[in-house]
Amino acid sequence: MHAIHVESLVKSFGGRRAVDGISFQVDEGEVFGFLGPNGAGKTTTIKILTTLIKPTSGFVEVLGYDVLQQADEVRKRIGVVQQQESYELNLSVERALDLYGLMWDVPRRLRRELLEDLLERFGLGEVRKVKAGELSIGMRRRLQVAREFMHDMDLLFLDEPTIGLDPIARRDTLNFIKRKSDEGVTVFLTTHILEEAEYLCNRVAMINKGRILVVDTPQNLKRFFGGIRRVEMRVNGMMPVDFVSRIGSDDSVESAQLTDPQTVTLVTKSPGEALSNMLRLAEKFRLEVVSVYAAEPSLEDVFIDLMRGDN
């Protein structure tokens, strides 16, 4: 059984189609990334999957339940961290966690255990008595993410969960999500930080203007679409400007620029050819090469390429 099954989903607001006939499946236990630029239709899709809004047309099944006919069953089994902030102004961190657990009918003893664990895991121990309204944005985000783990779920929706988090909290959060996934929770993630998707996701879908452009593993996407790579060369002494313009006009090179006085960075679709041409030219210029580095295409490179192509 698929955790999520979407067929020809459409959502229109007035005459505008925010989601335009998308279809995809998410397997149980999978971490599925849903990536796209602002306004691509990610949050609208999440709102439909979480039964918050109704689709205009199409078929959507979550955990085997139809989101229109069996919305209650869906909501009992999912967790959601929204993109927008959500908190209760007057409640302290520990009261907010406890009350959220109570709302989900978690027994008192288990709530106490979960609360202590989450306070420590999300670095909220020191602010446990502080009201949510008095916390920094980052701490409130931690609270919002931590809160969702006060109850059990089969499927977790994370809509840009690390917005506002510092790098350490971000990494801790990602690791915690990974652990939950290892325990069998299916995760549906949207993020603008593509390193996160690369780190967490088994598969990703890239969406633009309400349409899915591609669905595959990050590895396959990089292999198929990550044609453009960066090649860097660092020399001893100053990099001659003439060298940069000469290598920049090479047929194998898309662009060349000085990234610092000693380093030139090439963008190329043929890294091997560009590298050998650059080394040959360096020899002519009698440059002493200190290091050469060919960067792997990242998921971000794939994303930018695909979105630019689609636009």
Binding site: Q82, E88, W104
Partner: peptide, 18 residues
């Protein structure tokens, strides 16, 4: 009003409530 402003309204409606 506060629930709508601070996101709890949607959060609750995505939970096990009608």
């Amino acid at each position: 009003w506060f629930d709508r402003k601070y996101g709890m309204y949607e959060q609750i409606l995505m939970g096990p409530f009608r």
